[in-house]
Simulated assay, not measured.
Amino acid sequence: MTLSVSLRADRPVPLEVAFEVAPGELLALVGHSGSGKTTILRSIAGLWTPSSGQVRAGGTVWLDTGAGIDLAVHRRSIGFVFQSYALFPHMTALGNVLTAMATPDRAEAARLLDLVNLHGLADRKPAQLSGGQQQRVALARALARKPSVLLLDEPFSAVDRATRERLHAEIIALRSHLAMPVVLVTHDMNEAQLLADRMLVIQNGRLVREGTTAQVMADADALRAMGIREVAALLPAVIAGIEEDGLTRLDTATGPIFLPGVQGDPGTRLRVRIMAHEIILSRARPTGLSAQNILPARVTKLTQGDGPAVTVHLSVGEAELLARITRRAARDLALAPGDRVHAVLKAMSVARDHIAPASRHV
């Protein structure tokens, strides 16, 4: 079922947003602290009521202030993962999951713990689990409600970077089992880009940009709203194997690229986040360079922002790549929409946390 949201409020922050989330889609609400992201999530969950608005899950109305409808939290079919996890400290992992079930089912609770990679830890209490493991229990508990909508409120902010990377991969893998709309609140644009199908950039309670991850990350205004100076794009790829020099070969729509430290079996689909400033453009196919990653591309658009830089939008198969070059370089190359070029990427320029499994929407 599709989640439809339309909200207006004056307090605690001005709020004016409207959006939809399709079944199986992950939508990221991104913005600075105090921008209204969590207020939106709480409005969907029924934890806070706006001045006016509507929330619908499929054909079921959860909120319609004009009609006087405001269902209580327990009557809304949601799974909610809080930033603090909010686990019961005196209960085991299994006990925490069982509390969310209308009819407790130990076998089903154990299955959910296995689904989030907690096999063998059902009898441990939260204090005996790492932060990442506690987050997985909270996720299993949210799924135990068999929700129509899954809400994630900064679920990775309390864990270290290495754990966060593992959890990102697990969330994406888990999505193959989920058919409900998923709404993620985060202040981290990199996290949103790796996990989400679409982003909403929220500023002072209002929607300032909406689009796919590629569209938002290519929008200078949206990035400025988040205080981000750099742009990036996601390149879909498939692991082909390990080369003799230790680099992993990834096949893309227009050719192979070779990167270090990529984990996964041959055939695994990935999304590689490539920073725009790491791309070098050439009219002719370069020769005599140490760079092995040379992708044929077509220029679709040039965006000139403030300062000396130009963002070149490139079509690479069905994906969009972004290159950030100087105005002088763009002028010397005489670039125009429709031109064929070669995009060169240094293998060592892609960090490990810029690689994530592909979602089914990619």
Rank of each mutant, 00 (worst) to 15 (best):
R285A: 09
P256G: 02
G261V: 01
A309N: 13
I257C: 00
T254I: 01
T287S: 14
P308C: 11
E278V: 05
A253P: 04
T287Q: 13
L295D: 08
T303E: 15
I294A: 06
L250G: 04
R269M: 06
K301S: 15
S282Q: 10
R249H: 13
P256Q: 02
G261A: 05
G305N: 09
G288W: 12
G317I: 12
T248R: 10
R283Q: 02
D251N: 13
I280C: 07
L289W: 00
D251L: 14
P256A: 03
G307T: 01
L295H: 00
S290W: 02
T254A: 05
T252F: 07
A291R: 05
T300N: 00
L247C: 06
R249E: 15
L247I: 08
A284S: 09
Q263Y: 02
G307W: 04
V272N: 01
D265A: 14
S315C: 06
V299A: 01
D265L: 12
P260A: 10
A297V: 03
E318F: 07
L281H: 06
P256K: 01
R269P: 05
N293K: 07
M275W: 10
R249L: 13
A276W: 11
P308G: 10
R273V: 03
P256Y: 02
G305C: 04
R249M: 13
G261N: 03
G267P: 03
A309E: 13
I280N: 10
P286K: 02
T300M: 12
T248E: 07
R283K: 09
S315A: 15
V310I: 15
L295M: 11
G317K: 10
G246C: 12
G267Y: 05
H313A: 11
A297N: 09
L314P: 07
F258G: 01
I280P: 01
S315W: 00
P266L: 06
L295Y: 06
L250H: 03
G288N: 11
T303Q: 13
A291G: 07
G246D: 09
R271H: 09
P286E: 07
P296R: 00
R285H: 08
A309V: 14
L250K: 03
P260W: 02
D306V: 01
A284M: 04
T300R: 02
I280V: 13
G261H: 03
P266F: 09
G255W: 03
H313D: 10
L247N: 05
E318T: 10
R298A: 02
V316G: 05
G288Y: 04
L250I: 07
L314V: 08
G255I: 08
L302T: 15
L247W: 05
G267S: 04
T311R: 13
P296E: 09
A276Q: 07
A309Q: 14
V299W: 06
L302D: 15
T268K: 14
T311C: 05
L314G: 02
G264Y: 15
N293D: 06
T300V: 10
L302Q: 13
G264S: 15
Q304V: 12
T254D: 00
L314M: 11
R249Q: 15
G261P: 01
P256W: 02
